[in-house]
């Protein structure tokens, strides 16, 4: 890892025995993993395994019931999300994550002001418009009128222009056309070069594993695999098989074997 901030010894993020719940529903059970400074970790697993919950708990949106979250050597467990954000963690939530009633420029100002300070806002705005001319063209347009891809671009722009210490990105590729996904990943790669550590929550497994060196596979809110990315697909397949065995309902027409049967059909139809 080539990291420019001289903090190689301190992990960017350390998650220890993290548990969390939505009201009465428990979602995480003792999740632990570490993101080295400037490193990139993929967080994968089947739907409902708790990937997004890990992201939200780490960033303080959901309160942890147990365990610790350490950001660059600082214990931020129990901090409100806004303090964690100021401490250098940027969480890009899944889906539409802009303020649709505010203009593009107001969205950017809001993001830069607290993270980078009052004086830096003008400079960062200029940089954002230079790098993403489409945002400059639409700076006075309400963010809600942007297309889905542009909205995602807007929320990423705040991170890419003012690189934080750690980015937690949740389902960046969800609902995006493959070409836009390429742009997004290029931006993330640049961030990492700049020394920002990444936690990537993804459904598109191949893609994310290609750019991370370490992967965490979640199953039912617990870690099923934590190691090099190369070993993750096998672990994920195990988890998915186990999930399939559980949901395969007797007497329901054997859903498990249908995909196999079906995969042949288009060829036969040709």
């Amino acid at each position: 890892m080539t990291v420019g901030n001289g903090r190689e010894d301190v992990a960017a993020l350390e998650v220890r025995g993290l548990s969390a719940a939505y009201g009465p529903y428990r979602a995480l059970f003792g999740v632990s993993f570490t993101v080295p400074a400037g490193g990139a970790v993929a967080l994968i697993g089947p739907n409902g395994a708790g990937k997004s919950t890990v992201a939200r708990t780490v960033s303080g949106l959901v309160a942890a019931t147990e365990g610790r979250v350490v950001l660059c050597g600082r214990d931020v467990t129990g901090w409100p999300a806004w303090r964690i954000a100021r401490a250098g963690m940027a969480h890009v939530p899944e889906g539409r994550a802009v303020f649709s009633a505010l203009s593009v420029e107001e969205n950017l100002v809001l993001a830069f002001r607290r993270r980078a300070g009052r004086g830096a806002v003008g400079r960062l705005l200029g940089r954002a418009y230079e790098r993403f001319p489409v945002l400059g063209e639409r700076r006075h347009q309400r963010a809600g009128t942007l297309s889905g891809g542009q909205q995602r671009l807007l929320s990423l722009a705040t991170v890419l222009v003012a690189p934080p210490r750690l980015v937690v990105a949740d389902e960046l590729s969800l609902g995006l056309a493959p070409r836009v996904v390429d742009d997004v990943y290029t931006g993330l790669a640049e961030l990492q070069v700049a020394g920002t550590a990444l936690v990537l929550v993804e459904q598109q497994v191949e893609r994310v594993l290609a750019m991370t060196d370490q992967a965490v596979v979640l199953e039912h809110g617990a870690v099923a695999y934590d190691g090099p990315s190369a070993g993750a697909p096998a672990a994920l397949a195990r988890v998915v098989r186990a999930a399939g065995a559980q949901t395969g309902r007797p007497g329901s027409g054997g859903l498990d074997d249908e995909p196999g049967r079906d995969a042949d059909q288009p060829v036969g139809e040709g």
Binding site: P46, P259, R261, D262, Q265
Partner: peptide, 21 residues
């Protein structure tokens, strides 16, 4: 309309087979 959005691979495959059937 985007039936696979938010589903994992296993669920998508299940949905595909049901749709096709």
């Amino acid at each position: 309309d985007e039936p696979s959005s938010g589903l994992d691979e296993l669920e998508t495959a299940e949905l595909a087979s049901v749709l096709r059937a």
